[in-house]
Amino acid sequence: MTISPDSIILLQWGPLHLTATVAYTWLVMALLVLVSWLVTRRLSTGTGMSRWQNLVEVLVTGMRDQIRQVSRQDPGRYLPFVGSLFIFIATANLLNVVPGYMAPTGSLSTTTALAICVFVAVPLYGVVYEGPVRYLRHYVRPTWLMLPFNVIGEISRTIALAVRLYGNIMSGTVLAGILLSLTPYFFPVVMQLLGLLTGMIQAYIFAVLAMVYIASATSAHEAQN
């Protein structure tokens, strides 16, 4: 039984290899870009609009509202990063209902990659929007003694982010596999439904946590303003 799509290697060029994780990621990306392009190809600015445009606008507006609520800042500069996290994870998880598909988020490599992105993005946003000195001062608050704990906390929450998503999605797949061998036919379907719910919740949690981390790095500056 394959637990992770990482173990499926499709192509191999010397040390480089193409795993199923990357392939499915590309599939998800292609799907997202295609749908986006099709919908935004002909956008209406009038009162009438297509259903797809309506759906996309609801999605984008909802994400902007969520970001605004969490960060209490203008959502414009966070939307591409945080929104893409949510859309990618949600789509990757939802496609689990397609037979033969394996969610790339069920691979620790993918979740680690996303967590590393967040890990890098937090100081990046902080430095860009707050200045390096003011950002670095976060680590010595309230005293110098807290510096190591702050650093550890930064790293540990990144690991937690990666493992949380991986564990949830991987467990869903594993659970489905085990149940399939024990009680075939109907029960795995219910678990699949549960897996869809978990996948959506995890996508939301991941994106919101990323936003919270970024917001905590930039909030001092905003508060002063």
């Binding site: 990482d6 040390p15 994780t21 893409s84 691979s107 490599s109 993918t110 680690t112 990659a113």
Partner: peptide, 15 residues
């Protein structure tokens, strides 16, 4: 539980 670092870097680029 294994981390394939090639895949990780590929996924970062992908993301």
């Amino acid at each position: 539980m294994q981390i394939d670092w090639i895949t990780v870097s590929a996924q970062i680029v992908n993301f």
